[in-house]
Design a protein around this nucleic acid. Structure first.
Ligand SMILES: NC(=O)c1ccc[n+]([C@@H]2O[C@H](COP(=O)([O-])OP(=O)(O)OC[C@H]3O[C@@H](n4cnc5c(N)ncnc54)[C@H](O)[C@@H]3O)[C@@H](O)[C@H]2O)c1
Ligand SMILES: NC(=O)c1ccc[n+]([C@@H]2O[C@H](COP(=O)([O-])OP(=O)(O)OC[C@H]3O[C@@H](n4cnc5c(N)ncnc54)[C@H](O)[C@@H]3O)[C@@H](O)[C@H]2O)c1
Lengths: 232, 232
DNA sequence: TCGACTTTGTGCATCACTTCACAAAGGCAC
DNA sequence: GTGCCTTTGTGAAGTGATGCACAAAGTCGA
C-alpha cells in the first residue's frame, strides 16, 4: 500500500485557465445584479461573459455545486462564492511604484477600489514627483519602499517604472516579503520560486493584432523582400 | 551546387501560443543586438525571454529553419524574420478613442512608435478634452471617428473609453472597416466574425494575483467550510 | 402527486500546447 | 578530408484545456 505524504492542504486544484475566467464571470454577474436579476442559467451567463456554456459550468463545478438543476444559479450567492474563492472578501493593500504617465492613470483608476483593492502607497524616485497629491495620496520617495510595504501591509505591488529600473524595484519588493507583482515594464523579471509575477504589455498585444491584421490583408507576411542585412 | 534558401513559411497555421511569444523573443533579441551580440543559442535566448529552450526552438521552427546547428541563430537575421512575420516591417496607423487618464498615458507611450505603430488619431467625446495637444497630436471629437479612420488609413483602434461607451464605439469602428481592436474597457465586446479583439484588464490581473496570494497565506479561501480532504 | 420540462454537472473524446530526448547537421581544429 | 563537438529541428510522449452529449436532479403546472 502506498501512503501518500499529506502535503500542503490538498490543493483543490482549480486550473489556471479557470481562475483566469472567474473575474470575467464575476463582472457579468455584477452586471446582472445591478439589473436586479435573481437567477441566471449557465447559458445566459456564458453569453454575458463571452464563453462557452459547458466551459462555464465546468469552471463553476471546480468551486462546488452551487447551481440548481432546472433553474440555474442564484446571482448573489454565486457572486459571493466566486468573490470568496478569489479572495476578494478581504481587503488587499496595493502599492504602485513609478508614478509617471501610466502610474498616475492607475492611481486614478476607480476599478481598483471597487474590487477590494486599496491603493496604499505611491512611490517614485524622481524628487520632482515626490510630494504630488494623486487620488488622495501623497507620492513618497522610493527610498521609503521597504517601510511603506511593511507599515501598510502591502501584499501586491504594481511596477510602472521604466524597464531599466524594474528588476531592481522587483528585487527590493521581494526582499520586503511581497510575493505578488503586477509588472507593466516591458522586461522579463527574474524572481525566486514562490513569487507570482503577472505582466501587462500593451506592445505585445498590438504586435499580436498586427500579425493577424497582416494575414487578413494579404494572406501573410510581406513576400519577396530580400534580406538586406549582413549574414556571416 | 544547390544553395538552400530559407523558405517562406508555407504553414499558415502558426499556433496562437507561438504568436503570443514572438514579441517576447523580439524584445530579447533587440536587447542582445544593442549589446552587439552577433549570434545566440536557443538556450541563451530562451533564458533572456524567460521560456523553455525546446519551446523556443519549436516556436521558431514554425517560421522556418533560420538557425545554424552547432552555432545558433544570427541575431539580426532573426530580428528581421520575426518582425516580418509579425508584420512590423510595415507601418500601422493606430487611433486611440477615449483620451482620459489611460488614453493620455497610452498616447505618450514611446513603446508604440518604436515598433512600427504610429498614433494617427486621438478622439474623445468630451468637448473639454477636444482640442488638447497630446504627444504632438490634437484631440479630435469622436464624431470624426469614421472620417479619421478613413482618411488616415487607421487599421488598429484602441478603445479607452468608459465601459458604457465601449460597445457603441466598437460598433462604429467596425462599421468603418477596422478589424483589429485593443480594448481596455472592462466589458465583453460583441463583434462579428473576422474581427479580432484583444483586451487588457488590470482588474482581472489583480484578481488572479489575489487568488494565489490568498492560497499562500492561509491555504485557501477564508472560511474553508467544505473541508472534504479525503485521503485515499 | 405526477409527469413534462429545464438545466446542471460530468464522463469522455478531442484538441492544443509543452516537454523530452536524440538523430542529424554543421562548424571547427588539425 | 576526418573526427569531435555543439546545437538545431522534430518525432513522440505527456499534460492540460475544451466542448459535446447526456443522465441525473430538480422545478413547476395541472
Ligand atoms: N504609458 C503607457 O501607456 C505604457 C504602456 C505599456 C507599458 N508601459 C510601461 O510602463 C512603464 C511606465 O510607463 P510611463 O509611461 O508611465 O513612464 P514614465 O517615464 O512616464 O514614468 C516612469 C516613472 O517611474 C519613475 N521611476 C524611475 N525609476 C524609478 C525607481 N527606481 N523607483 C521608483 N520610480 C522610478 C520615474 O521617475 C517616472 O515618474 C514603462 O516601463 C513603460 O514601458 C507604459
Ligand atoms: N485608468 C486605468 O488605469 C485603467 C485601468 C484599466 C482599465 N481602465 C479602463 O479604461 C477605460 C478608460 O479609463 P480612464 O481612467 O482613462 O477613464 P477616464 O474617465 O479618465 O477617460 C475616459 C475618456 O473617454 C471619453 N469618452 C467617453 N465616452 C466616449 C465616447 N463615446 N467616445 C469617445 N470618448 C469617450 C471621456 O470623455 C473621457 O475622456 C475605462 O473603461 C476604464 O475602466 C482604466
Amino acid at each position: 500500500m502506498i501512503r501518500r505524504i499529506p502535503q500542503q492542504p490538498r490543493d483543490r486544484g482549480i486550473p489556471d485557465a479557470t481562475v483566469a475566467r472567474l473575474p470575467l464571470y464575476l463582472r457579468a454577474l455584477n452586471g446582472l445584479a445591478e439589473r436586479a436579476v435573481a437567477t441566471v442559467s449557465s447559458e445566459d451567463l456564458a453569453v454575458a461573459a463571452g464563453v462557452n456554456s459547458a466551459k462555464l459550468r465546468k469552471d463553476l463545478s471546480h468551486l462546488g455545486s452551487y447551481g440548481t438543476r432546472g433553474v440555474g444559479y442564484d446571482v448573489q450567492y454565486l457572486i459571493y462564492q466566486i468573490s470568496r474563492e478569489l479572495g476578494l472578501t478581504q481587503d488587499w493593500a496595493v502599492a504602485i511604484v513609478g508614478v509617471g504617465n501610466l502610474g498616475r492613470a492607475l492611481a486614478n483608476y476607480g476599478g481598483f477600489v471597487s474590487r477590494g483593492f486599496r491603493v496604499a502607497g505611491l512611490l517614485d524616485a524622481d524628487p520632482e514627483v515626490v510630494g504630488d497629491h494623486i487620488a488622495g495620496l501623497v507620492v513618497e520617495h522610493s527610498d521609503e519602499l521597504e517601510s511603506v510595504i511593511a507599515k501598510r501591509g502591502v501584499s501586491i505591488v504594481v511596477i510602472a517604472t521604466p524597464a531599466t529600473a524594474a528588476q531592481a524595484v522587483c528585487d527590493r519588493v521581494i526582499a520586503s516579503g511581497v510575493t505578488s507583482i503586477l509588472n507593466f515594464a516591458p522586461v522579463v523579471l527574474t524572481v525566486p520560486a514562490g513569487v507570482d509575477v503577472r505582466k501587462v504589455d500593451l506592445s505585445i498585444e498590438l504586435q499580436i493584432l498586427a500579425f493577424h491584421e497582416q494575414r487578413k490583408v494579404n494572406g501573410g507576411p510581406v513576400m519577396g523582400e530580400e534580406w538586406a542585412g549582413e549574414v556571416s
